[in-house]
Amino acid sequence: MRFEARENIPRWLPWMAVAGAGAGTLGFAAVLIAAAGAAPLVGFKELFIGSFGSRNAITETGATATPLIFTGLAAAIAFRAKFWNIGVEGQLYAGALAVTYFGTGIIELPAYLMIPFLLIIACVAGGLTLLPMVLLRQFMRVDEVVTTLLTNFVIILLVSYLLEGPWKDPYSLGWPQAAAIIDAGLLPQLVPRSRLHLGFAIAIIAAIVIWLVHSRTIFGFSSKAVGLNQSAARHAGIPVTRTIILIGLLSGGMAGLAGATETIGLKGYLTLDLSPGFGYTGIAVAMLGNLHPIGVIFAAIFMAIIYVGADAMSRAIDVPTYLADVIVATTVLAVLVGLVLVRYRVLIRG
């Protein structure tokens, strides 16, 4: 068996690969459902009903997709430039910390100013959290994967300290949570009597804006060039360091928005379980979305279906909810195989 590089890759081929990866993942999920002693088809039926079968299920899926679009964008922006930001989880909490600090009464503005202000603040906080790791990599060649990963643990401990200490809401009866966001800072609901909030629309707008930036601006072009080959990009006159710093700020900023919209849209206050690993799932979302902003929207909805549906399925037929995490992880590996098949033709004899 050997590989032969494809001469030219049709534009549709990578999308076929991610679609195939999604299908392969569901096939693997069927095996696991069977291993748990349930019928796979019944499992998938429950999963679909749980995530799409009712008005409530659909809005829940949309609400879960919201942070995943943001974290998926955060990973996609960075990975496209081969900057491995695995610190999205920490940057998400940095955004949540920022909106909690500014949104609990220290500043009071009318809603049409308050909400944009909080979103910008969260974006800045997420970006600044990632910035030191960007600088360490560009100027001291310190691997960003490990530094961004380790920072996640530090930030979550910081959140834990603040919620148990100085920021603890005295009315929360022992449960560590921060004071509630003021009414003017809360995102309105998109559908009445549901948890689907304006953040979903903001996430989609953000994806479209990033798509335009990627495809229509010089920065979009340079960020791709930096990802393909840093030294070639430098020779071509692209300001590599400046581009990477901007990518880092943008990537961290998207992660910060995930934390912000969860805090001011979904929960209304910061808790330590704000994110059940949305930062890590964002990596799978970005891969399944083929690192394309519009692809990220669909991949995030796919992952949200899995998460919301797996909960319902677990209640109905007693398959551990960890199935959702297995599916997320399998997606990453399946897309990798798909991408290799896009770049190379496999010759069985040769």
Binding site: F79, Y280, I283, A284, V326, V328, A329, L333, L336
Partner: peptide, 12 residues
């Protein structure tokens, strides 16, 4: 990406 994928996969 493989490493992160294996970490997510092995732990889940």
């Amino acid at each position: 990406v493989t490493g992160i994928g294996i970490t997510l996969f092995a732990s889940s």
